[in-house]
Simulated assay, not measured.
Amino acid sequence: MGTADDTTAAEFHAFFERHYAELSRLAYLLTGEPDTADDLASDALLALWRRWDRVRAADHPVAYARGVVANLAKSRIRGAVRERRRVALFWSQRTDRFEGPDVPAVLDVRSALRRLPFRKRACVVLRHALDLSERETALTLGISVGTVKSQTSRGMAELRRLLGPAPDPGPERHRVPAGVAGDRTGGGTP
């Protein structure tokens, strides 16, 4: 192995160490699947290694890497949707199926994110969870800054609609009644 190969491997290793956790986090936020996130980040980095000469020469190698993760996540989501449709079709043809909706009692941010169309979800995640600029988000997704702005705005509006208004805790909710453990006023009944 020559010096150039050693240098290339060292550069890639440094890139891997610097960006693997971020790419895995991005994959998790896009798919909502913690087990899949590491696989997608690893698959993306393997693809980058295969094209490392081209990637390292790019103006924005990290944006390129994020784009690869986003594309892999999109493919994963599409495959999962196709599988769910096949399962739903199978169960719809059965006569002994369970009737009634399976509606979760609590809708959290992750499940609300999964309900957003992919481009809106990607824009919201990149802008708000990874704190990328509009320009960095546009580079990552291969879209215009204007599209990032509109998709992020629409995605956030849809999240607010899905999650509903934030409850107002009011002043009473924070007060600890006398006699309850943790009450430092010394009051209450023994």
Rank of each mutant, 00 (worst) to 15 (best):
A63G: 15
G79D: 12
G32W: 04
L30W: 00
Y64S: 05
E136C: 02
L132P: 00
F118E: 06
T95Q: 15
V55C: 04
L29T: 04
G32D: 02
T31L: 00
K74N: 14
E136W: 06
V124W: 02
R127V: 01
F90P: 07
W91I: 11
A41H: 04
R51D: 13
E99F: 12
P117A: 13
L40W: 02
S24K: 15
H128P: 00
D53Y: 03
V103C: 10
R51T: 08
R85G: 05
D131C: 11
A105L: 13
R56F: 05
L113D: 12
R51N: 13
R115P: 05
S133N: 11
E22D: 15
V68E: 08
A44S: 12
D39I: 02
P34R: 12
R94D: 10
G142W: 02
D102L: 15
L48I: 02
E83M: 03
A112K: 01
A80L: 09
R135C: 01
R51C: 06
A73K: 00
L48A: 06
V125H: 01
R115G: 11
R50A: 06
E33A: 10
F90R: 15
A129Y: 03
F98K: 14
D53V: 08
L72M: 05
R76S: 07
T95F: 12
S133M: 05
R85L: 11
T140Y: 01
R135D: 12
A65G: 06
Y64Q: 09
W52M: 09
R66P: 03
A112W: 07
G142P: 00
R25T: 13
W52K: 08
D59Q: 11
F98M: 15
T31M: 00
L29S: 09
A41M: 06
D39W: 02
R50P: 01
T36K: 14
R25K: 09
A65K: 03
A58T: 08
A105D: 09
L126Q: 04
A112H: 04
R94L: 15
K120A: 08
T140N: 06
A138H: 03
L126D: 01
A37E: 04
